[in-house]
Design a binder for these strands. Structure first.
Length: 270
DNA sequence: CATTGTCCCTGGAAGC
DNA sequence: TGCTTCCAGGGACAAT
């Protein structure tokens, strides 16, 4: 599922091919993909615009266009973007973007939960997001500040995009394991040492995953069709039945705020 | 305001 | 084997 490392990889892979390109056309097979825009207007408003830059905000892909417009994509759980794919059409194809050099970008999404916006007000879409873990402002002090007063489980806190943007279910579990913190522990009750470990763990886990080009669990693949291999570094995420690398006890699975949560009950104490 | 619950969506797995 | 049911989860929104 595309979380920060996957979206970052997609952004990095695409940038050299699409920056400077002109949209010559777009076909939307599933109109529910396009948010807050009438479909005919979406076609006419996008066509003819040039891609100025591609950035990431949390798990959102932000494509700056000429003429003060921005195309924003969210892949949710099963979305992927494929550049000049072999396949022509599949059930899960939702849209195809065409460029002036003949390149095509296919938006695939098996569960059809992803969304696309065309907007002149980026903040309206992503303005509610919290700090990005790779923002220089994401210090231990800042983490302490944003956690203060929150009685929710730390796992729930990490998943809430309005506090920190980009961490999803897999990397929340990995970071908490790395820091040795129980997922149900209340955010406000973390000691300064635990907060320090968590801060380091978040950055390390995400950096390692980006180095591995994301995790190919479920449908994630890179725009060129290659798989990521971050899942091979996972120590608890999706590792039910596996043994903890530190203590040898089996990895447990519990439900925290309706999300499957993997952890080691021996290494991660309340 | 802070936190929790429900729903969206589909294909693969599990159960009978 | 074939059918039904369950489950995965990010985020919007409703409920508490």
């Amino acid at each position: 599922m595309p979380e920060l490392p996957e979206v970052e990889t997609i952004k990095n892979d695409l940038s050299q091919y699409i920056i400077g390109r002109l949209f010559t056309g777009v076909s939307v097979y599933d109109e529910k993909l396009i948010q807050q825009y009438q479909i005919g207007l979406f076609y006419s408003d996008l066509t003819g615009r040039r891609i100025v830059d591609i950035t990431r905000r949390g798990k959102y892909l932000v494509i700056l266009l000429s003429g003060e417009k921005t195309l924003i994509l969210h892949l949710m759980m099963t979305g992927s973007l494929l550049l000049n794919p072999e396949i022509k059409y599949e059930r899960s194809s939702r849209a195809v973007f065409r460029f002036d050099n003949g390149d095509k970008l296919l938006y695939m999404d098996r569960r059809r939960l992803g969304r696309v916006w065309l907007t002149d007000d980026v903040e309206l879409i992503v303005g509610k997001l919290g700090i990005d873990p790779f923002n220089a402002g994401f210090t231990v002090e800042e983490l302490i500040r944003i956690m203060w007063g929150h009685d929710m489980p730390i796992k729930a806190f990490l998943l809430d995009q309005t506090y920190i943007a980009g961490i999803g279910n897999m990397y929340a579990d990995e970071a908490l394991y790395d820091a040795g913190i129980h997922p149900m522990k209340k955010a406000s009750s973390l000691s300064s040492m635990e907060t320090d470990k968590l801060h380091t763990a978040i950055i390390n886990v995400l950096e390692t995953a980006i180095d591995s080009k994301g995790a190919s669990v479920d449908t994630y693949q890179r725009p060129g069709g290659e798989m990521g291999y971050a899942q091979f570094n996972f120590r608890v995420a999706h590792q039910k039945g596996a043994l903890c690398m530190r203590c040898g006890n089996p990895v447990q699975r519990i439900i925290v705020r309706n999300r499957g949560t993997y952890y080691c009950s021996y290494c991660q104490k309340q």
